[in-house]
Amino acid sequence: MKAAVLREYGEPLEIEAVPRPDPEDHGVVIETEACGICRSDWHAWQGHGEWADDQVPLGQILGHEPAGTVVEVGEGVTDIAEGDRIAVPFNLGRGHCEYCRNGHGNVCANGIALGFEEAAPGAFAEEVHVPYADYNAVGLPDAVSPVEMAGLGCRFVTAYHALAHRADLTPGDWVAVHGCGGVGLSAVHVADALGANVLAVDLDEDKLDTARELGADETLRADDVDVPTAIHARIGGAHVSVDALGIAETCRNSIDCLPPRGQHVQLGLTTDDERGEIPFPTDAMTMREITFLGSRGMPPTRYPELLRMMERGSISPGKLVTKTVSLADVPDRLAAMNDFGTSGIEVVKFS
């Protein structure tokens, strides 16, 4: 089968013929129908993460936002059958630890990151193995297309988990979203669906236009103003503020735009400039009782509530899909992220 393989950090991925996977006793193999191209893939391609012992190894097949059809089933799998259409979370739990048993499999004590670890080759490939499939595989409703499900990817579910489960968000609250890439636009759409008022911040007017289309009530060009001051002046500060980019400036802007008892949500991962460390105004956060929240993916056990919202039309991840490309296009599309030259969510379509 063909797959996109990381051979050198920062060099174009190689499209190679590799052996097809065989299912482990607890796993299934899917024929990949679609897979999102995510900024986390870009981080992996660049070799980021060594500061957190999280650097992706060379030789890895990238891609972690797949949807497809099951073509082979391990002997120990009981709930998944050949022909089932499934989506796959990137944060794969094993289903047995205290976190998995309590509904927090996205932070499984022995979890595996699809497409980022040697034990879990990714989905920029014609077929991909899904370990611990009875726990991780998410069945797709007939009305949900593979491209739309790949659009959920890690960005949309991370934004949903952050705002629906991690933050204490009440309808009518103001949510500020700093950075309108894939995860930022997902946060805009989710916050609007949950009944919040949304203020989107970015440098790019086209991305702010898209944010308005997805439900943003207010937008702010970050190059025109001091962002926290402008947000306080315009809406009195945000009840919840999301850093969807991961650079020091957006993180600090997100914290500084909060009033007392506001909540900062960190979704963006840092780059070589920050290397996992960003200074915070700790004393001010303490005195104002500011909450700092991280969010990573979403437990597979929570996917049904998101799928129900999709079926009702409350949310539509497909609105964020701006381009479908072939597997051969993946190297160029990752390179386009070097200068933020992509918009919304791009998806590899295999058939």
Rank of each mutant, 00 (worst) to 15 (best):
I30L: 13
E33R: 14
E33V: 00
A34T: 08
A34V: 03
A34E: 03
I37Y: 14
I37G: 02
I37C: 02
R39T: 14
R39E: 11
D41H: 09
D41E: 07
D41M: 09
W42N: 04
H43P: 11
A44H: 07
A44E: 11
A44R: 07
W45M: 10
W45R: 04
W45N: 00
G49S: 06
G49Y: 02
E50K: 09
E50L: 09
E50D: 15
W51P: 02
W51K: 00
W51M: 05
D53P: 01
D53Y: 04
D53T: 03
D54E: 15
D54M: 09
Q55L: 03
P57G: 09
L58G: 08
L58K: 13
G59N: 07
G59Q: 06
I61R: 10
I61V: 15
I61D: 01
L62F: 03
L62W: 01
G63K: 08
G63Q: 03
P66C: 05
P66Q: 05
A67E: 05
G68A: 06
T69H: 08
T69I: 09
V70E: 02
G74N: 13
G74I: 11
E75N: 14
G76D: 07
V77D: 00
V77G: 00
T78M: 12
D79T: 15
I80P: 03
A81K: 14
G83R: 07
G83Q: 06
G83W: 04
D84R: 04
R85C: 00
P89W: 12
F90A: 15
L92H: 01
L92D: 03
G93L: 06
G93P: 00
G93T: 01
G95P: 02
H96A: 13
C97F: 14
C97L: 09
E98F: 11
Y99E: 12
R101N: 10
N102V: 01
G103R: 10
V107C: 04
V107G: 08
C108F: 12
C108Q: 05
C108I: 10
A109Y: 14
A109D: 14
G111P: 01
G111W: 13
G111T: 10
G111Y: 08
